[in-house]
């Protein structure tokens, strides 16, 4: 389990993370979403032991990460900007990784090479952006690390490769009980990938939740009655928003779906429809509840 306790990281006068707390459980895909400069990459670099926090601490199973090879051996980090050794090909990278990562699996490396159809003898600097990311993914997954950190995971991958990487990540989590921490500035990207999501804004996590719970606990209801009615008719139902146009009311409801449905049907509506919400819509409403403007928190998203 990764634990960040009151972590503060500064770069000169800029505070990248401010007293951040979070816990990333084992065996899940944990998504970190936030706009540029929200602190996602900094948090990953802290978790992977590249940076040392100015205040607070980052631990993995109660052990500090920074300058601790025993822990770092259990982590592999794929950054947003990839780096490969000068003039290297995948074979040479494999040699370095195999020598420094205790659990590096050559067998897995060969398997992944075949899956991605990459030539291990071709210099990496001749690879396209997407191929370089595939190469980095192959190396990362071959390390058989307990914690796989991906920064802007799917950047540059075509849809087929995205699916392949996603599947591989699921397999890592399912079969090896590994933990994947992935970041993106795009919520849609993480929507169908993550088990848990955290939203970073201005160096802090402002919202963290289980994705399934998010999706099932918030839903849209369209309802109409033959008589005139007001909001007070729905007392007892937790509504995040309520709009009425003519006789049809649209509301975002939080709560158990079955119970809420039963409660509303009992009011004998002439129209009753429950619509699922996209994760983005869920975030918009949840942020609104917390006093944030979603478009401010995820600037990239609204562009």
């Amino acid at each position: 389990m990764i634990t960040a306790s009151f972590v503060t990281k500064r770069f000169d006068d800029t505070v990248a993370l401010q007293k951040l707390n979070c816990t990333i459980p084992e065996g899940c895909v944990y998504g970190l979403v936030g706009s540029n400069g929200s602190g996602k990459s900094t948090l990953l670099r802290l978790i992977s032991g590249i940076y040392r926090p100015e205040e607070g601490k980052i631990t993995i199973d109660d052990q500090e990460v920074f300058d601790n090879p025993a822990v770092k051996n259990r982590i592999v980090f794929v950054p947003d900007e990839l780096y490969f050794l000068p003039h290297a090909n995948l074979r040479r990278m494999e040699q370095l990784y195999a020598s420094v990562y205790e659990h590096f699996s050559l067998e897995r490396f060969e398997t992944l090479l075949k899956e991605f159809s990459l030539n291990p003898d071709k210099p990496l600097n001749t690879f396209s952006k997407g191929m370089r990311r595939q190469a980095a993914t192959i190396l990362a997954l071959s390390c058989c690390a307990d914690y796989i950190l991906f920064d802007e995971t799917f950047d540059g991958l075509d849809p087929v490769m995205r699916n392949l990487v996603k599947n591989l990540l699921y397999n890592e989590v399912m079969e090896r009980k590994a933990t994947a921490v992935v970041t993106s500035h795009s919520l849609r990207e993480l929507e169908d990938t993550c088990d848990q999501l955290a939203l970073l804004h201005k160096g802090g996590i402002i919202f963290e939740s289980d994705v399934d719970h998010l999706k099932t606990s918030l839903f849209k209801v369209q309802i109409a009655f033959s008589d005139d009615y007001g909001r007070e008719r729905f007392d007892g139902v937790e509504m995040l928003s309520y709009e009425k146009q003519g006789s049809v009311a649209t509301m975002i409801v939080r709560g158990d779906r079955g119970e809420t449905e039963a409660k509303l049907k009992a009011l004998a509506p002439v129209l009753f429809e429950v619509l699922p919400l996209s994760l983005e819509e869920v975030f918009v409403y949840e942020m609104g509840q917390r006093g944030y403007e979603f478009s401010e928190v995820l600037k990239q998203e609204v562009k």
């Binding site: 992977s48 300058d67 601790n68 090879p69 770092k72 051996n73 780096y83 205790e102």
Partner: peptide
């Protein structure tokens, strides 16, 4: 170089090593 620095600092070796 930031990118290169991240790479080398991420690998599981102590700084002394």
């Amino acid at each position: 170089k930031r990118v290169e620095s991240d790479f080398y600092h991420a690998i599981p070796l102590t700084r002394t090593q």
